[in-house]
Design a protein around this nucleic acid. Structure first.
Length: 107
DNA sequence: CGAATGACCGTTC
DNA sequence: GGAACGGCCATTC
């Protein structure tokens, strides 16, 4: 399989390292984890999201998946994330993965 | 192996 | 800001 445990671990670390009141986009995670496409991130979330704060992971549209949207927004709002009429305020809630402790493989 | 599916992204109209 | 199209990648049947 292409996706190795290391890649999955990388994504998990990043997601788990997201501070309370902050969110990240799939594309950012994929880039920070060294993955090729955000699709892989979505796959990981779907398969192994039990131990991860998946509610802090949203799409680039500032809006999570339809099935989770309601819960995500409610939980994020509880953490102090700025919600803009059902949309997450990426402008200030977007967490900088590259500036976090979790450092990508090649950097 | 080929086709279909999916927690996506970027560009364009 | 929103809808439509294409692309990219991994999984499953």
């Amino acid at each position: 399989m292409a996706t190795t445990e290391a890649e999955v671990e990388r994504v998990r670390e990043l997601v788990a390292s997201i501070p309370r009141g902050a969110v990240v986009t799939y594309g950012d995670i994929a880039a920070a984890a060294g993955l090729s496409t955000p699709r892989t991130v979505g796959w990981i979330m779907r398969t192994d999201s039990a131990d991860l704060p998946w509610h802090r992971v949203i799409g680039a549209s500032g809006r999570p998946a339809a099935h989770l949207a309601s819960k995500q927004l409610a939980r994020l709002a509880e953490e102090g994330v700025r919600i803009h009429d059902g949309r997450v305020d990426l402008r200030s809630a977007r967490h900088d993965l590259m500036h976090s402790d979790a450092v990508p493989p090649d950097r």
